[in-house]
Write a protein that binds this DNA or RNA. Structure first.
Lengths: 141, 141
DNA sequence: CGTGAAATTATATAAGT
DNA sequence: ACTTATATAATTTCACG
């Protein structure tokens, strides 16, 4: 990971479909060298994946919320996190220090949808306390 | 946005550098048609961007936290959100209903780094109350 | 909307510095 | 590690169903 790798990552972060030939011109390195470096970033695991950023509201996902969750006992950690990972309406989930155990984000089509998802999570084994905040606006994402 | 578009998006979500020729074989549609549909998804804004998912810990970003922020008055919204958008260590920021106004995520190299970023945010104009939670583990992201 | 073929670009491979 | 040259493969363009 030298400075050249960082520059390549900056181009890929801005647009992961940027052609190696474009990056090559920008950073004054041969196309082969750029591709070789990208492959190394991939195989070393620094690049985990390439993905697409969607305008969720344009495909009907207009409702989102943050949810705090606490578990009764650490023994429920495995089953809880498994359920979270499987739930397609949950974007992220972090395990935290402090007043509660997890913070997760829900993204869905409607408030009725949100209610269902919310209830599903509340009813997972070991879930004791929850608190939910509607997202009014995504300032940055 | 028909079912074919959804399928294409699923492939691109899983790997945005998937070749149109690969998708073509999977969904039994000509390469040209796949590319045409992708272009339409791009120009319509459904696809906002292509990006790369990095293993942040492998590039030294080992520390992350969630931070709740409240503002004294709505008049500080513009300047606050501008500062948030400019801060490269802030991954997301949501404007919420409830006990506080914003929830944001900080990603950085160390706890000393976190302390600085945390203080910068606390000292932004209009910031009244904050509360910070260390992220122990990213269960899902 | 979709297909298929030709033209253009990109990527992969390999040999040399 | 980088470069150049060549081979293979992908994308773009366009005429047509």
């Amino acid at each position: 990971m030298d400075n050249v790798d960082y520059k390549i990552l900056e181009y890929l972060k801005a647009n992961s479909r940027t052609k190696a030939s474009t990056i090559s011109k920008e950073i004054h390195l041969s196309v082969s060298a750029v591709i070789e470096r990208i492959h190394k970033l991939e195989t070393s695991g620094i690049i985990k994946n390439y993905t697409v950023v969607l305008d969720e509201s344009k495909i009907g996902n207009d409702t989102s919320a943050l949810m705090e969750v606490s578990l009764d006992h650490p023994k429920f950690y495995e089953s809880f996190t498994r359920a979270i990972k499987e739930n397609k309406n949950i974007n992220f989930c972090y395990y935290l220090t402090g007043d509660f155990d997890f913070m997760l984000k829900i993204l869905c089509k409607s408030s009725e949808d949100l209610e269902k998802i919310h209830n599903n999570i509340k009813n997972l084994e070991g879930v004791s306390k929850t608190k939910t905040y509607y997202i009014l606006k995504s300032v940055k994402d």
